[in-house]
Protein backbone atom coordinates (compact mmCIF):
# COMPACT_ATOMS: atom_id res chain seq x y z
CA UNK A 1 0.00 0.00 0.00
CA UNK A 2 2.75 2.39 0.99
CA UNK A 3 4.56 1.50 -2.19
CA UNK A 4 1.57 2.42 -4.29
CA UNK A 5 1.15 5.69 -2.44
CA UNK A 6 4.80 6.42 -3.04
CA UNK A 7 4.47 5.43 -6.67
CA UNK A 8 1.45 7.60 -7.07
CA UNK A 9 3.25 10.57 -5.58
CA UNK A 10 6.24 9.95 -7.78
CA UNK A 11 4.06 9.81 -10.85
CA UNK A 12 2.70 13.31 -10.28
CA UNK A 13 4.62 15.54 -12.67
CA UNK A 14 5.70 18.02 -10.06
CA UNK A 15 7.06 15.42 -7.62
CA UNK A 16 8.75 13.57 -10.44
CA UNK A 17 10.47 16.74 -11.56
CA UNK A 18 11.74 17.37 -8.06
CA UNK A 19 12.82 13.83 -7.17
CA UNK A 20 14.39 13.18 -10.57
CA UNK A 21 16.27 16.45 -10.29
CA UNK A 22 17.83 15.36 -7.03
CA UNK A 23 18.69 11.88 -8.34
CA UNK A 24 20.47 12.98 -11.51
CA UNK A 25 23.76 14.22 -9.95
CA UNK A 26 24.20 10.94 -8.03
CA UNK A 27 23.46 8.83 -11.07
CA UNK A 28 25.80 10.91 -13.21
CA UNK A 29 28.59 10.52 -10.67
CA UNK A 30 27.99 6.76 -10.50
CA UNK A 31 28.14 6.59 -14.30
CA UNK A 32 31.51 8.32 -14.43
CA UNK A 33 33.04 6.18 -11.67
CA UNK A 34 31.76 2.91 -13.15
CA UNK A 35 32.89 3.88 -16.66
CA UNK A 36 36.38 4.72 -15.42
CA UNK A 37 36.73 1.44 -13.51
CA UNK A 38 35.31 -0.56 -16.40
CA UNK A 39 37.51 1.09 -19.01
CA UNK A 40 40.61 0.76 -16.85
CA UNK A 41 40.01 -2.95 -16.27
CA UNK A 42 39.08 -3.50 -19.90
CA UNK A 43 41.83 -1.54 -21.56
CA UNK A 44 44.76 -2.05 -19.18
CA UNK A 45 44.17 -4.99 -16.88
CA UNK A 46 42.52 -7.57 -19.14
CA UNK A 47 45.08 -9.56 -21.17
CA UNK A 48 45.14 -9.40 -24.98
CA UNK A 49 43.14 -12.10 -26.73
CA UNK A 50 45.26 -14.96 -28.04
CA UNK A 51 43.51 -14.83 -31.44
CA UNK A 52 42.38 -11.25 -31.89
CA UNK A 53 45.13 -9.40 -30.08
CA UNK A 54 44.17 -5.96 -28.86
CA UNK A 55 41.29 -5.32 -31.25
CA UNK A 56 38.88 -7.41 -29.20
CA UNK A 57 38.83 -4.66 -26.55
CA UNK A 58 36.19 -2.83 -28.53
CA UNK A 59 33.94 -5.58 -27.18
CA UNK A 60 33.77 -3.70 -23.87
CA UNK A 61 31.81 -1.00 -25.69
CA UNK A 62 30.12 -3.13 -28.32
CA UNK A 63 28.59 -5.84 -26.18
CA UNK A 64 27.10 -3.56 -23.49
CA UNK A 65 25.63 -1.26 -26.12
CA UNK A 66 24.10 -4.22 -27.97
CA UNK A 67 22.59 -5.42 -24.69
CA UNK A 68 21.33 -1.95 -23.91
CA UNK A 69 19.78 -1.59 -27.36
CA UNK A 70 17.46 -4.51 -26.57
CA UNK A 71 16.98 -3.65 -22.91
CA UNK A 72 15.94 -0.07 -23.67
CA UNK A 73 13.48 -1.32 -26.29
CA UNK A 74 11.88 -3.59 -23.67
CA UNK A 75 11.71 -0.72 -21.17
CA UNK A 76 10.21 1.55 -23.82
CA UNK A 77 7.53 -0.96 -24.82
CA UNK A 78 6.80 -1.80 -21.17
CA UNK A 79 6.45 1.86 -20.23
CA UNK A 80 4.24 2.45 -23.28
CA UNK A 81 2.00 -0.46 -22.24
CA UNK A 82 1.71 0.92 -18.71
CA UNK A 83 0.87 4.33 -20.12
CA UNK A 84 -1.77 2.95 -22.46
CA UNK A 85 -3.43 0.61 -19.97
CA UNK A 86 -3.41 2.74 -16.83
CA UNK A 87 -3.30 6.10 -18.59
CA UNK A 88 -0.24 7.29 -16.73
CA UNK A 89 1.25 10.32 -18.42
CA UNK A 90 4.65 9.82 -16.87
CA UNK A 91 4.95 6.30 -18.32
CA UNK A 92 4.43 7.73 -21.81
CA UNK A 93 7.06 10.35 -21.13
CA UNK A 94 9.50 7.61 -20.04
CA UNK A 95 8.77 5.53 -23.12
CA UNK A 96 9.26 8.37 -25.55
CA UNK A 97 12.35 9.66 -23.77
CA UNK A 98 13.84 6.17 -24.04
CA UNK A 99 13.52 5.95 -27.82
CA UNK A 100 16.37 8.28 -28.85
CA UNK A 101 18.64 6.83 -26.15
CA UNK A 102 17.94 3.30 -27.31
CA UNK A 103 18.51 4.31 -30.92
CA UNK A 104 21.88 5.80 -29.92
CA UNK A 105 22.91 2.57 -28.19
CA UNK A 106 21.87 0.63 -31.28
CA UNK A 107 23.83 2.96 -33.51
CA UNK A 108 26.85 2.63 -31.22
CA UNK A 109 26.56 -1.16 -31.35
CA UNK A 110 26.46 -1.02 -35.16
CA UNK A 111 29.44 1.31 -35.46
CA UNK A 112 31.58 -0.61 -32.96
CA UNK A 113 30.51 -3.87 -34.59
CA UNK A 114 31.64 -2.63 -37.94
CA UNK A 115 34.92 -1.30 -36.51
CA UNK A 116 35.51 -4.65 -34.85
CA UNK A 117 34.60 -6.42 -38.07
CA UNK A 118 37.12 -4.57 -40.22
CA UNK A 119 40.23 -6.38 -38.90
CA UNK A 120 38.27 -9.65 -38.60
CA UNK A 121 36.56 -9.80 -41.96
CA UNK A 122 38.52 -7.23 -43.90
CA UNK A 123 35.28 -5.36 -44.61
CA UNK A 124 33.41 -2.61 -42.81
CA UNK A 125 30.11 -4.36 -43.22
CA UNK A 126 29.27 -8.04 -43.46
CA UNK A 127 25.73 -9.37 -43.33
CA UNK A 128 26.31 -11.10 -40.05
CA UNK A 129 23.10 -12.23 -38.34
CA UNK A 130 23.57 -10.18 -35.19
CA UNK A 131 24.64 -7.04 -36.98
CA UNK A 132 21.66 -7.38 -39.32
CA UNK A 133 19.27 -7.83 -36.40
CA UNK A 134 20.80 -4.78 -34.80
CA UNK A 135 20.28 -2.81 -38.01
CA UNK A 136 16.61 -3.80 -38.12
CA UNK A 137 16.29 -2.84 -34.46
CA UNK A 138 17.61 0.60 -35.41
CA UNK A 139 14.88 0.81 -38.06
CA UNK A 140 12.28 -0.05 -35.42
CA UNK A 141 13.59 2.70 -33.15
CA UNK A 142 13.59 5.19 -36.01
CA UNK A 143 9.99 4.25 -36.82
CA UNK A 144 8.87 4.94 -33.24
CA UNK A 145 10.74 8.25 -33.19
CA UNK A 146 9.44 9.33 -36.60
CA UNK A 147 5.85 8.50 -35.66
CA UNK A 148 6.21 10.37 -32.38
CA UNK A 149 7.52 13.41 -34.23
CA UNK A 150 4.79 13.29 -36.87
CA UNK A 151 1.85 14.19 -34.63
CA UNK A 152 1.24 17.71 -33.46
CA UNK A 153 -0.72 16.69 -30.41
CA UNK A 154 1.53 15.23 -27.78
CA UNK A 155 -1.03 12.86 -26.26
CA UNK A 156 -1.86 11.29 -29.61
CA UNK A 157 1.82 11.11 -30.53
CA UNK A 158 2.74 9.35 -27.29
CA UNK A 159 -0.02 6.79 -27.58
CA UNK A 160 0.42 6.08 -31.30
CA UNK A 161 4.19 5.66 -30.97
CA UNK A 162 3.59 3.55 -27.86
CA UNK A 163 1.39 1.13 -29.80
CA UNK A 164 4.10 0.86 -32.46
CA UNK A 165 6.70 0.13 -29.77
CA UNK A 166 4.55 -2.71 -28.42
CA UNK A 167 3.98 -4.12 -31.92
CA UNK A 168 7.74 -3.92 -32.39
CA UNK A 169 8.49 -5.80 -29.20
CA UNK A 170 6.29 -8.70 -30.35
CA UNK A 171 8.19 -8.71 -33.63
CA UNK A 172 11.72 -8.45 -32.22
CA UNK A 173 12.08 -12.17 -31.44
CA UNK A 174 10.45 -13.14 -34.75
CA UNK A 175 12.78 -10.86 -36.67
CA UNK A 176 15.77 -12.06 -34.69
CA UNK A 177 15.13 -15.75 -35.32
CA UNK A 178 14.23 -15.25 -38.97
CA UNK A 179 17.46 -13.34 -39.51
CA UNK A 180 19.49 -16.03 -37.73
CA UNK A 181 17.86 -18.67 -39.88
CA UNK A 182 18.44 -16.62 -43.04
CA UNK A 183 22.08 -16.17 -42.08
CA UNK A 184 22.81 -19.86 -41.61
CA UNK A 185 21.05 -20.49 -44.90
CA UNK A 186 23.25 -18.13 -46.87
CA UNK A 187 26.61 -18.35 -45.17
CA UNK A 188 26.63 -21.77 -43.67
CA UNK A 189 27.08 -22.30 -39.95
CA UNK A 190 30.11 -20.21 -39.03
CA UNK A 191 31.26 -19.49 -35.54
CA UNK A 192 30.33 -15.93 -34.85
CA UNK A 193 33.21 -13.93 -33.48
CA UNK A 194 30.83 -12.28 -31.06
CA UNK A 195 30.42 -15.23 -28.78
CA UNK A 196 33.72 -16.15 -27.29
CA UNK A 197 33.61 -19.87 -26.48
CA UNK A 198 34.77 -19.31 -22.92
CA UNK A 199 35.38 -15.92 -21.52
CA UNK A 200 38.19 -15.36 -19.09
CA UNK A 201 37.18 -13.84 -15.73
CA UNK A 202 39.58 -10.96 -16.27
CA UNK A 203 37.52 -10.09 -19.36
CA UNK A 204 34.15 -10.85 -17.80
CA UNK A 205 34.59 -8.42 -14.89
CA UNK A 206 35.13 -5.30 -17.04
CA UNK A 207 32.33 -6.43 -19.35
CA UNK A 208 29.86 -6.63 -16.48
CA UNK A 209 31.04 -3.36 -14.95
CA UNK A 210 30.68 -1.65 -18.32
CA UNK A 211 27.17 -3.04 -18.64
CA UNK A 212 26.21 -1.66 -15.25
CA UNK A 213 27.83 1.65 -16.19
CA UNK A 214 25.78 1.79 -19.41
CA UNK A 215 22.59 1.00 -17.50
CA UNK A 216 23.24 3.76 -14.98
CA UNK A 217 24.11 6.10 -17.84
CA UNK A 218 20.79 5.22 -19.45
CA UNK A 219 18.95 5.98 -16.20
CA UNK A 220 20.73 9.34 -15.94
CA UNK A 221 19.96 10.46 -19.47
CA UNK A 222 16.42 9.07 -19.28
CA UNK A 223 15.65 11.12 -16.18
CA UNK A 224 17.21 14.21 -17.73
CA UNK A 225 15.17 13.89 -20.91
CA UNK A 226 11.96 12.95 -19.09
CA UNK A 227 12.39 15.88 -16.75
CA UNK A 228 12.50 18.45 -19.53
CA UNK A 229 9.69 16.69 -21.33
CA UNK A 230 7.54 16.91 -18.17
CA UNK A 231 8.41 20.58 -17.83
CA UNK A 232 7.34 21.19 -21.44
CA UNK A 233 4.19 19.13 -21.05
CA UNK A 234 3.13 20.94 -17.88
CA UNK A 235 4.10 24.40 -19.09
CA UNK A 236 0.65 25.71 -18.25
CA UNK A 237 0.71 24.62 -14.62
CA UNK A 238 1.54 26.99 -11.81
CA UNK A 239 4.42 25.00 -10.44
CA UNK A 240 6.28 25.35 -13.73
CA UNK A 241 5.93 29.12 -13.55
CA UNK A 242 7.18 29.05 -9.97
CA UNK A 243 10.13 26.89 -10.95
CA UNK A 244 11.04 29.10 -13.90
CA UNK A 245 10.85 32.22 -11.75
CA UNK A 246 13.19 30.70 -9.18
CA UNK A 247 15.84 29.72 -11.66
Amino acid sequence: MRFFRYFHRFSSPREFFRIAGSMIPWLAAATIVLLMIGLYLGLFVAPPDYQQGESYRIMFIHVPSAWMSLFVYMVMAGAAAIGLIWRIKLAHVMAMSSAPIGASFTFLALVTGSLWGKPMWGAWWVWDARLTSELILLFLYLGVMALYAAFEERRTAQRAAGILAIVGVVNVPIIHYSVMWWNTLHQGPTVSKFDAPSIHPSMLAPLLIMSVAFTVFYATVLLMRARWDVLDQEQRSNWVDEYLEQS
Binding site: G143, A146, A150, G168, I175
Partner: peptide, 23 residues
Protein backbone atom coordinates in the same frame (compact mmCIF):
# COMPACT_ATOMS: atom_id res chain seq x y z
CA UNK B 1 -4.22 2.98 -38.69
CA UNK B 2 -1.33 4.79 -37.00
CA UNK B 3 -0.67 7.19 -39.88
CA UNK B 4 -4.15 7.78 -41.31
CA UNK B 5 -4.63 10.97 -39.29
CA UNK B 6 -1.48 12.50 -40.77
CA UNK B 7 -1.71 14.49 -43.96
CA UNK B 8 1.34 12.89 -45.54
CA UNK B 9 1.87 9.46 -44.12
CA UNK B 10 3.28 7.71 -47.20
CA UNK B 11 7.01 7.51 -46.50
CA UNK B 12 6.42 7.26 -42.77
CA UNK B 13 4.18 4.25 -43.40
CA UNK B 14 7.02 2.55 -45.30
CA UNK B 15 9.43 3.28 -42.45
CA UNK B 16 7.05 1.78 -39.88
CA UNK B 17 6.01 -1.27 -41.86
CA UNK B 18 8.98 -2.49 -43.89
CA UNK B 19 11.08 -3.65 -40.89
CA UNK B 20 8.09 -5.70 -39.73
CA UNK B 21 7.83 -7.29 -43.19
CA UNK B 22 11.37 -8.72 -43.06
CA UNK B 23 10.56 -12.18 -41.60
Amino acid sequence: ALTVGLRRGGILLALLILPLYIP
